[in-house]
Amino acid sequence: MRNFKRDQFTICYALFQKDSATDKYGNRIGGYTEPTKLKISLSAAKGDSNYNVFGKDTDYDREMVTTDTNCPIDEYSRLWIGVDTSETHNYVVTKVAVSKREKRYAIKEYKG
């Protein structure tokens, strides 16, 4: 998947941030940042099984690609694709593959 600007979609993402507070079991709890807009290349559907950078066991519906290797999105991020951020997020990141020139994200539709 190439990363031409004309092929990019505007999505929103929220990052998970651990808080200093703890739950009743002593685990640190946290929340999500406010949604942030991002232009990124987005596949129409899952990629070909012959070229699977995420492995055979990764369950995902679509793929996102960016040449910004400093993109902060990770496996704990929530995504809004084609919906308003006032609604519940509709995708989550299941896996990240980083190379020298790009970051690829396997994303799964969230039906929570």
Score class of each variant (00 low, 15 high):
residue 81 I to L: 01
residue 5 K to T: 13
residue 107 I to V: 09
residue 58 T to A: 07
residue 56 K to N: 14
residue 78 R to K: 15
residue 14 A to M: 04
residue 95 K to T: 11
residue 104 R to M: 07
residue 84 D to P: 01
residue 20 S to D: 13
residue 107 I to L: 05
residue 65 V to A: 12
residue 52 N to C: 09
residue 13 Y to R: 02
residue 31 G to M: 07
residue 48 D to S: 14
residue 93 V to L: 03
residue 64 M to A: 07
residue 44 A to M: 09
residue 111 K to H: 10
residue 88 T to V: 13
residue 98 V to G: 04
residue 55 G to Y: 03
residue 43 S to T: 15
residue 54 F to W: 01
residue 18 K to T: 14
residue 13 Y to G: 00
residue 22 T to A: 05
residue 67 T to D: 15
residue 17 Q to S: 08
residue 49 S to T: 12
residue 110 Y to A: 08
residue 98 V to E: 10
residue 80 W to R: 00
residue 58 T to S: 09
residue 90 N to P: 01
residue 45 A to Q: 11
residue 63 E to C: 09
residue 65 V to H: 13
residue 18 K to Y: 14
residue 86 S to Q: 06
residue 32 Y to R: 08
residue 96 V to G: 01
residue 89 H to D: 10
residue 21 A to C: 09
residue 34 E to P: 03
residue 95 K to R: 12
residue 34 E to I: 10
residue 50 N to L: 14
residue 101 R to M: 11
residue 102 E to M: 15
residue 41 S to F: 08
residue 110 Y to Q: 12
residue 74 D to N: 09
residue 84 D to C: 05
residue 98 V to H: 02
residue 31 G to A: 06
residue 106 A to F: 01
residue 79 L to N: 04
residue 108 K to E: 11
residue 94 T to H: 04
residue 92 V to W: 05
residue 111 K to Y: 09
residue 77 S to L: 06
residue 14 A to W: 07
residue 73 I to D: 00
residue 33 T to D: 04
residue 52 N to P: 04
residue 69 T to H: 03
residue 22 T to L: 08
residue 46 K to W: 08
residue 106 A to T: 07
residue 19 D to F: 04
residue 40 I to Q: 03
residue 24 K to N: 15
residue 110 Y to V: 08
residue 90 N to K: 04
residue 43 S to W: 02
residue 80 W to I: 00
residue 50 N to W: 12
residue 49 S to F: 10
residue 71 C to N: 03
residue 39 K to I: 01
residue 108 K to N: 10
residue 71 C to V: 05
residue 67 T to R: 12
residue 14 A to P: 03
residue 19 D to L: 05
residue 27 N to T: 07
residue 63 E to M: 15
residue 41 S to R: 07
residue 21 A to E: 14
residue 105 Y to K: 00
residue 51 Y to W: 13
residue 25 Y to K: 11
residue 62 R to L: 14
residue 30 G to Q: 10
residue 52 N to H: 07
residue 106 A to P: 03
residue 85 T to D: 05
residue 108 K to P: 05
residue 72 P to S: 02
residue 28 R to K: 15
residue 67 T to E: 13
residue 51 Y to F: 14
residue 84 D to T: 06
residue 21 A to G: 08
residue 77 S to M: 08
residue 88 T to M: 15
residue 96 V to K: 08
residue 51 Y to Q: 11
residue 51 Y to M: 06
residue 101 R to P: 00
residue 40 I to E: 01
residue 70 N to P: 00
residue 8 Q to Y: 02
residue 22 T to C: 12
residue 36 T to C: 10
residue 93 V to W: 06
residue 97 A to I: 08
residue 81 I to R: 01
residue 26 G to Y: 02
residue 74 D to P: 00
residue 40 I to V: 12
residue 1 M to T: 12
residue 33 T to W: 04
residue 87 E to W: 05
residue 75 E to D: 11
residue 30 G to D: 10
residue 51 Y to D: 11
